[in-house]
């Protein structure tokens, strides 16, 4: 096995294991911490694909900012077993079914997608993830969607301020 193969398997096992731990953990704070591990494993995958910018932005945005806010909310609400609402057995059953169906759709869509079939991932020599190339593509080819999505963020921010200012 080559180094990148070993790394790939290690990161995949780590990502899947911690993703399962996110669901299994009883304590919500532990779930959040496991989710951070998942993000690190995924960033490792990005690094294997030579997408360094994507990898580090994934860590800055998700592990560094969004998960901190998650942790904030959970710590302030002081969730524990006593406050967890008892769920109906039918709710759990329907949740499992709909989640399974969604997974099925994802798997079949990604297996049969024409762009992916018969192609290998570019290990270490793809350069689309480097910051120069990504920036050029984003600001030339996809300038309009990029700007529209930033307006979306702005409106979400303004909305949050408006809701916060109400009282």
């Amino acid at each position: 096995m080559s180094t990148s193969e070993i790394l790939f398997w290690f990161l995949s096992v780590l990502a899947l294991f911690s993703a399962i731990m996110v669901l299994v953990s009883k304590n919500p704070v532990h779930s959040v911490l496991w989710l951070i591990v998942v993000f690190f494993a995924i960033s490792g995958h990005y690094l294997l694909l030579n997408a360094q910018f994507l990898a580090i932005v994934n860590i800055i945005v998700y592990a560094g900012a969004i998960m901190v806010l998650f942790l904030f909310v959970i710590m302030l609400m002081n969730l524990n077993k006593g406050t967890e609402p008892q769920k109906n057995i039918w709710m759990i059953f329907s949740g499992v079914i709909s989640g399974g169906l969604l997974l099925w759709i994802f798997i079949s869509a990604s297996i049969s997608a024409g762009d992916i079939v018969g192609k290998n991932a570019l290990l270490k020599d793809g350069d689309i993830g480097l910051i120069q190339n990504l920036g050029k593509v984003l600001f030339s080819e996809y300038a309009l969607p990029f700007e529209i999505s930033s307006v979306l963020f702005l409106s979400a921010m303004v909305g949050a301020v408006v809701i916060g200012k109400k009282n």
Binding site: V57, I59, I60, G64, A65
Partner: peptide
């Protein structure tokens, strides 16, 4: 520099 940022945010 982004690495520095990532670590600082952690």
């Amino acid at each position: 520099i982004l690495f520095v940022f990532g670590v600082v945010s952690l």
